[in-house]
Structures are given as structure tokens and as C-alpha cells.
Amino acid sequence: MTSIPEYVIETYGLTKVYRSGGGAVVAVDKLDFTVEKSSIFGLLGPNGAGKTTLLMMLTGLTLPTNGSGRVLGYDIVRESREIRRRVGFLPEGFGFYEHLTAEQNLEYIAALNDIPKPERRKRIEDILSLVGLYEVKNRRVSSFSRGMKQRLGIAQALIKDPELLLLDEPTAGLDPEGSRAFKDLVLKLNSEGRTIVLSTHLLFEVGPLCSSIAIMNRGRIVVQGRVKDLISKLMSEVGYKIYVEVRGDLGKLASALTGMEGVRGVRIGVDSLYVDSTRDIRVDIVKIASDMKVEISSIRVEEPSLEDLFIRYYRGEASNA
């Protein structure tokens, strides 16, 4: 039995047009998209693709020009405060009161979230421990490094114990160590059942964490889905790169494969063949090699990477294919 996915975010024709000085810029254009519960969702795209505007609309900080959306079942226009009560949001370009300590900043955020006073201290300490800032909780934020501020940003998003986290450009400015710590934290939070939306132009930083992605460009979602499904789809569109390690007559096997249906090209290496095919012909290759008494030591399909996926859809090649 197939389970019906439960969505924490749904948008229908969501549009945002910024008007200024007589001109109009379509930041988000008739967007339909969904985010499954308990997933790590990557909202990928270059700067100016409309990712931040989309997140702002989802949290009610910017009103849509058209369309509608629901976050955790709440309407993004009419019930935005309920959304902000339940969703932890790390906006791009966020800031803290630098003259206050990390703890004092979180104390204020906790008060704004109506967290009862007796609970606050423990929750703040737990979260500071989780993000690795407990030891420096009494230090002023002005003395924090970029990475520490980023972790404090995540802490403020977690203070309300949210089901859903929206993190806009969360790894921007982080050093490799900070970036790794961030990834570990995201995986840990996800393992607790939280849905995490990572909006970034730094594909390689967070892409590998994501179970689902949407690639945005010029206010539109170019492609969306589970990473595994999208890679399969890409392979069916661009073809299969099959790598065959062979012991025996390489040339003979290459000639036999060249004439096969679906094979677009065969390249001969030192002890291997690269077959470019429109379909998965691994079984056929093994059979032909066996008939020709050529020994295959290994055969595998080289899957396209997330980078290939991004480049292809971002450049709009998919629509032309």
C-alpha cells in the first residue's frame, strides 16, 4: 500500500510582484510546490531566483500579489502569526542585539514567543548546548564569529521547538568546520522528525543533505521532486553512462555494442569501455560479452550528480531536451 505524503508546505499559483518607480519585478511567478513532512528539502537556485521572497511569503513577512499557500495547514495570509509561532525561521541577513549576550538575545526571542518564564532558562540552555554555544552563553554577541552568529541564528529558530525549520542561506560565510557542524545539526534535527527547508545558492554545501529539492530560477520552479527520482528522470532524458571493466578483446566487444539499439556511442579505455546509451543495457552487455567469451570484471551505471541535475535544469536544458 502506498502512503499518501503529508505536506507541511503547499502553494498554489503563488506570485509576488515588486513595484517600484513605475516598474515591476516578478520575484515569484505562479509557484506551485509542496514540501513533504519530515523531509530535508533543498530550495536551490542562483541569487535573485526568488527563494528569499518565497520564504518571506510563507512566513507572512511579505504578502503575495496572487495565489495562495498553506504552511502546517495555516493560511499564509490570514494565519501568518500562527505560522510564525510554529515555524522556526532563519532569515537571510538576520541580526542580533550585539551589546547583549547570547543568552539575553534568546531570552528576548523566547519572551516574544510567549514561552513561560519558568521554562525559558532550561530551554535556552538546552538549545545553546545543541548548537554548541553553551560555553559562551554569557559573552556579548559582538564578540562572536560569523559561524557562532549563524549557530545562534539557528538557536533562535529552534527556541519555539518548531515542527518546521526554514533556513535561508544557512551556510553563507561558514568555514568548512562550521559547515560540517551545521550539516550534522541539520541531520540531527531531521532525525527528531522536524522538516527542514534549506534555501541556498550553495548547492554543494547542502545539496547532499536533501531528500527532495526544488530548483528555482527567475521566480519559477524549474524542477522539483525527490533527489532519487530526479536523477532517474535525468538519466532517462540524457542517457545512461555505463562503465564496463573488461578482460579480453575490448575492440570486438566495442564493435558488437556499437550496433545495438539505443547505443549512442562507445569509447574504449585501457581496460574498460564507456557506453553511452539511451536505456539501461547492462543485461544485454553481459549477455553479448558472455557469448563472445569476453570476461567482464565489473559493470556499473554512472549516476549523474546533483551538480549535473542543477546545471541541466538551471540552464533550462530539460525543457529543450
Binding site: T59, L61, R81, E82, R84, R85, F89, L90, P91, G93, F94, G95, F96, Y97, E98, I109, L112, N113, D114, G153, Q156, A157
Partner: peptide
């Protein structure tokens, strides 16, 4: 300072 974004991201 970016604090406005941080504050407005809360249920206020």
C-alpha cells in the same frame, strides 16, 4: 542590523 528580520520572524 538585521534585528528587524529576526524579530518579525517571531509571532509578533
Amino acid at each position: 542590523k538585521g534585528t528587524l528580520k529576526t524579530i518579525l520572524a517571531q509571532p509578533i
